[in-house]
């Protein structure tokens, strides 16, 4: 939080850059403080724990990226958890007992399935003009229903190479493979996207739909593509669930609402048009670290849920206070 105040009092290009990223920077600062705290309360916290952190964080981090894209476009997707469940069970069921090579085709197919699911959401939002929240809420039922039709109980399998992609260290014992996987996925998909015309259009329609329309952006098409991309990242998240657990679970986890929380904590405005994916990813790690720290401190784990809620509310309150002050000044 100190970075934010420091950034505001300084002027100049450096100050401007700091100010633009003040939210993310303070979030990183908060994460560092949490890590220091963790090391203090639990001196044995080390490489093994970092590996565990990496694996447990990956699905939610990808879900947060998925949510971030659609929220930046001015929408919201409450069906992410269900899409993850569906893609996860489809991949686990298809890979069970098949060869390693076949699994490559499965992964590609499941990613395409994710794009398709997102595209259906997007098409419904654009064509029916029903508010995003209602459409995706309803589609959450639909996708979860399909997931249960594919597989009534948790099961299936995952290819060895897929598990190897996300479980265990790489190079140094401190670096989890899952972190590398996350960085690679984001670098391959997000960075070209955000630099493209489409990326700019997504920010534009999220920021001011009418202005974007009048500047020649095809609002419907852009929104549709944003939802498709959200579907793609949901499929990545679903695959990472399969890879890290080795099975597919048809019942959606708490990922939808947690992804909304992470996105908001990560500095993406729910009003759209502002933020990126780095903030939400850091926010996911912060949320997980809080849980870990509370376990180390021997605090009731249920209080960790309370803490997540309080932090979510507190941070957003702080953010809106800052904005109110800025508006007055």
């Amino acid at each position: 939080m100190t970075a934010a105040t420091a950034a505001m009092s300084r002027i100049g290009p450096l100050g401007a850059a700091l100010r633009r990223n003040a939210w993310t920077l303070s979030l990183v600062g908060f994460l560092v403080a949490l890590l220091v705290l963790t090391k203090v309360v639990q001196p044995r916290y080390g490489a093994v724990a970092v590996q565990g952190l990496g694996t447990s964080v990956l699905p939610l981090a990808l879900a947060a990226v998925a949510q971030a894209i659609v929220v930046i476009a001015g929408g919201i997707d409450l069906s992410i958890g269900s899409m993850m469940a569906l893609t996860s069970v489809v991949s686990a069921t298809a890979m069970k007992g098949q060869s390693e090579e076949f699994a490559v085709a499965v992964v590609v197919g499941v990613l395409l399935l994710g794009v398709l699911l997102g595209a259906v959401n997007g098409a419904l939002v654009v064509i029916t003009r029903v508010p995003d929240i209602v459409v995706t809420l309803a589609m959450a039922f639909v996708w979860a229903g399909f997931a249960l039709l594919v597989r009534a109980a948790p099961g299936g399998g995952a290819a060895v190479w897929l598990k190897d992609l996300v479980v265990g260290p790489i190079g140094n014992e401190w670096i989890p493979k899952s972190a590398i996987a996350l960085v690679v996925i984001v670098a391959i998909v997000w960075i070209p996207f955000v630099r493209s015309r489409l990326g700019l259009s997504v920010y534009a329609i999220g920021s001011n739909q009418l202005a974007a329309f009048r500047s020649g952006v095809s609002v419907g098409r852009t929104k549709f593509l944003a939802y498709a991309l959200t579907g793609l990242f949901s499929a990545f998240a679903g695959l990472s669930l399969t890879a890290s657990t080795g099975i597919g679970t048809p019942v959606p986890g708490p990922y939808t609402l947690l992804s909304v929380a992470a996105v908001v904590l990560g500095g993406v405005s729910l009003a759209g048009g502002r933020g990126g994916v780095f903030g939400p990813i850091v926010a996911v790690v912060v949320l997980q670290m809080i849980r870990t720290d509370m376990t180390f401190l021997n605090v009731n784990t249920n209080l960790a849920v309370v803490a997540q809620g309080v932090i979510l509310i507190g941070v957003v309150m702080f953010g809106s206070l800052v904005q109110l002050r800025r508006a007055r000044a």
Partner: peptide, 23 residues
């Protein structure tokens, strides 16, 4: 008062209430 988006506020509140109920 703090103008937190209702979606976020009630979502956060549901975490808090659920956690406290569990305790």
């Amino acid at each position: 008062v703090f103008r937190v988006h209702p979606l976020i506020m009630t979502l956060g509140m549901s975490f808090v209430v659920l956690g406290l109920a569990n305790v």
